[in-house]
Design a protein around this nucleic acid. Structure first.
Lengths: 166, 166
DNA sequence: TATTGTTATACTCTATAACTATA
DNA sequence: TATAGTTATAGAGTATAACAATA
C-alpha cells in the first residue's frame, strides 16, 4: 500500500509467485466481506433444494412470524425498496406459500399471511438453515459466536451515523 | 419460525406494532449480513470522493502491492471472473492509474503496474479507508476486533468445503 | 489442445420515477 | 395532499459461452 519507491527492485515479470493481499487483509471490513461471500454461497446452496433464495426465505420467515403485516412494513424490515418487494411477494403468493388479503380498514393495503404450505416450507427451510449455520460456524466456539454476534450488532447501531433500525 | 398454532390470537390488522425479526436475529449469518450492509454503504461513501468503487479500489491496491501481476491473477485474487475484470482494468487504465504492458515471454498476457498517479490515489484512498474502519468499528475494542478478524478467517477456511484461498 | 484477454449476453439485486387507488 | 402497492426502467455486480491471439 505504501510503495513510494520510484523503481521497485522486483519487476521480474516471469516468476510471480502468488498475489499478496496483505494490505487488504488488515481491513476488518475486507475480512467480513470474504467471510460473508462464503456464508452467502453456502446459504444459497442450502436454500436451493427448497426453491428459495435468501430474499424469499427472509420474507417468508418474517411473514410467518408476523402474520398480518403489510407490504411496506415487510419492505422496511428487510431494508429493501417497495418496488423490489412486489416481485418477491408475487412469487411467494404464486407458489401458495402466502396470501394477500385486502385490509378492510385501509383498502390500499395488503395484509400478508403464510399459508399452511408456507409455514411447512418455512419450518423445513429453517431446519436446513440451522444446519447450514452449524456447518459454516463449526470452528467457532459458542463464546466466539456470541462475541461476533454482539460485535455485528454494535456495528449496526454505531453512534455517528443514522439509527437505521431499532 | 416455529408457529404451529393453527389460529394465532392476534390477527388484529390495525395495530401492528412493529415487525419482529427475532427468528432471523438468532442467525449469525443474518447478523453478519446486516452489519456488512452498513459497512458497505459507509465504504462506498468513503471511496466516492476519490471516484473509486469497492472493486476498483481493491484492484488498485492489489496492483500497487503486486507490480507486474497478470489479469488472470488479479481476477483470481479478487475472486471474480476474468470477463468482469476487463472493464475494471479498462477503467483504471483510462484514468491513467495503471498501465497494461505486454509480457515479452508470453505475448498473450498483460502485465499490470500502477502509475505514479495510481500509487498516489491509492495512498489517499487507503487513508480514507483507514478512517472509515476506525469510524465504523469505533465501538469495538481491539480485542473484539481481533476475535472478529480471526473468526472471519476461520469461516473462510472451514474444513468441510473447498479450500477457496491459500 | 490449452490459455489470456476479450466480447456479447444474461440474470440477480438494487434504486428511482411515475402511475392507480385509496385515504 | 399523502400513502400503499404497482409498473417500468436503469444501474451495478456477477456468471457463462464463444472468439482471436498466442502458447
Amino acid at each position: 500500500m505504501s510503495k513510494s519507491d520510484p523503481n521497485p527492485p522486483r519487476p521480474a515479470p516471469d516468476d510471480i509467485p502468488h498475489v499478496s493481499d496483505a494490505s487488504l487483509r488488515r481491513l476488518i471490513g475486507y475480512q467480513i466481506k470474504r467471510a460473508f461471500n462464503v456464508i452467502q454461497a453456502d446459504l444459497a446452496e442450502t436454500l436451493a433444494p427448497h426453491e428459495l433464495r435468501m430474499v424469499t426465505y427472509t420474507a417468508l420467515v418474517l411473514i410467518v412470524d408476523n402474520p398480518g403485516l403489510r407490504q411496506f412494513q415487510l419492505a422496511a424490515a428487510m431494508d429493501i425498496e417497495r418496488p423490489n418487494l412486489v416481485v418477491i411477494v408475487d412469487e411467494l403468493e404464486r407458489r401458495d406459500l402466502i396470501e394477500r388479503t385486502r385490509v378492510p380498514t385501509d383498502r390500499r393495503a395488503y395484509s400478508l399471511r403464510a399459508t399452511v404450505q408456507g409455514r411447512r416450507l418455512c419450518l423445513k427451510a429453517s431446519a436446513a438453515v440451522a444446519a447450514h449455520e452449524e456447518r459454516v460456524f463449526a470452528s467457532l466456539s459458542p463464546e466466539t459466536r456470541a462475541v461476533v454476534a454482539e460485535a455485528m450488532g454494535a456495528i449496526r447501531r454505531r453512534p455517528g451515523q443514522n439509527s437505521e433500525d431499532e
